[in-house]
Amino acid sequence: MSGLISVDDARRALAPHALDAGEETIGINDALGRILARDVLAGTTAPPADVSAMDGYAVRLADTKDTGSQLRVTGEVPAGTLPTHAIGPGEAMRIFTGASLPDGADHILIQEEAERSGNHIRVTVPQSAHQHIRKAGRDFSAGDVLVPAGICLTPADLGLTAAGNNATVTVRRRPLVAILPGGDELLPPGSALSPGKIIDSNSAALAALVRSWGGEALTPGIAGDSVAAIRAMIDAVNEADLILPVGGASVGDYDYMKAAFTEAGADILFSGIAVRPGKPTWFARLGQQRVLGLPGNPASAFVCAQLFLRPLMMSTTGPATVFKAALETGLSKAGFRETYLRAVSRQQDGQTIVAPLADQDSSLLRPLQTANCLIRRMPNAPACAAGDTVECVKLD
């Protein structure tokens, strides 16, 4: 256990190094899912004036209270045009949905409740209240904050942004994350496998997480088992904000990752975490670049990305969702490391229930298809019974 730090200490150590790639201004058609860096303000008022909510006639309510009342039609207002004159007592103006009301009008007589003959209409249904008018500024007024900074932009946010006459938004720039799997045994997906070789699945899974958390993933290839090979890969990703070396950081004879980064000038801040899975996780700074070393076992890499990579990308993804749930089955006494069990949570009778998956081996990928959360168990936690409450972390 010598040299290992706790999960909480690791997160505290990572906090000052959270990525901030700055801001950029982009078109709203490219902004879905991006994190807004600056408030979106309304550049106009909506509606810009009192407008009709229906097709019909702009009238004075006082002239339409009785069935059979006659009014003279003095003009027409299509949507997108302005009335040319006001209406007076006993007058009406043909109007269409979205068109501005003429001065003097305080009610819309819908066309289904009027009969027209030439330049006159007759009220067929008595009118008792002001209706079918959308008042100026009912939705928003110029200068209003339409979307606050920090929001992950949704289709509704972008529609509102456009309605406020904004063609662009300022968002947080996507950090560039380089994924460097290491190991002579690894081959890219689609390769013909020979004995002793395995497929690199970590690059695809981690790249997908990076993108889902608002970053850009760079996958330059697989580093061989030598300091020189890893150094060449480090040099190739010198534009990345964060490097994710995967594997090669345990205590085997062919684990060269930390040695290569140290030779490149990296300052290692911690070199192992008392966590299961993921004990070999480490962190360093290489100039302005962050370096988060993840375990090579696929489940370990995925879980540790959730626990330690996500906080580094907080500015583009936000915090992980933590929730309480009742255990469906009991758990035995925890070990000496903080443990995260892949699990499935669900709603049952208004309560959140969680069940750990049966096989927690760190090399297995198929359980990650099923798991939607992690059960957090503190070091040496006592055994739990079914129904006990546990803390869970939602998986992305």
Rank of each mutant, 00 (worst) to 15 (best):
T45N: 11
T124A: 12
V177Y: 05
G293M: 10
V344S: 09
T161P: 07
G221C: 06
G330D: 02
A162L: 12
M378S: 15
A162T: 11
L176M: 06
A228Q: 09
D235H: 12
K333V: 13
D55V: 05
T25Y: 03
G183C: 02
L269Y: 00
P181D: 09
L244W: 04
V303G: 03
P195F: 02
N372L: 01
D66L: 14
T97C: 13
R11L: 15
R174W: 01
L14S: 06
A217Y: 03
Q351A: 10
G287K: 07
I35M: 05
T219S: 08
F323N: 08
I5T: 02
D139E: 15
A58F: 00
R310I: 03
I273K: 05
G350V: 01
A228E: 14
D103C: 03
G293Q: 10
P295F: 07
G68D: 05
L109N: 13
I353P: 08
A129D: 13
D235M: 01
L209D: 00
A371D: 03
L357V: 08
V125H: 11
L242Q: 11
A229I: 02
T170G: 02
A205W: 10
A136G: 07
V147D: 00
S100H: 10
D361H: 05
E328D: 08
Y254L: 11
P47M: 04
A92C: 12
Y256R: 10
F96E: 15
V177L: 09
L19S: 02
R376C: 14
Q131M: 13
G80S: 06
D361I: 00
P126D: 11
E338Q: 15
V123H: 11
A223G: 14
G272R: 02
P379S: 11
A385N: 14
V125D: 05
S226T: 15
V125G: 08
S271M: 07
Q369C: 13
A299S: 10
R337K: 04
L206C: 09
R377F: 09
R231L: 15
N165Q: 14
D8S: 14
G22D: 00
S194I: 08
E91T: 01
R231Y: 00
D200Y: 09
A386Y: 00
A207V: 04
V291G: 08
I230T: 13
G159R: 12
G143N: 03
D184V: 02
A358R: 12
G196Q: 04
A299T: 06
Q288N: 10
H120R: 15
L374I: 05
L374A: 11
I375M: 11
D39Q: 06
P181R: 01
T316M: 05
R134Q: 13
G248E: 09
A21Y: 06
V390P: 03
G159W: 08
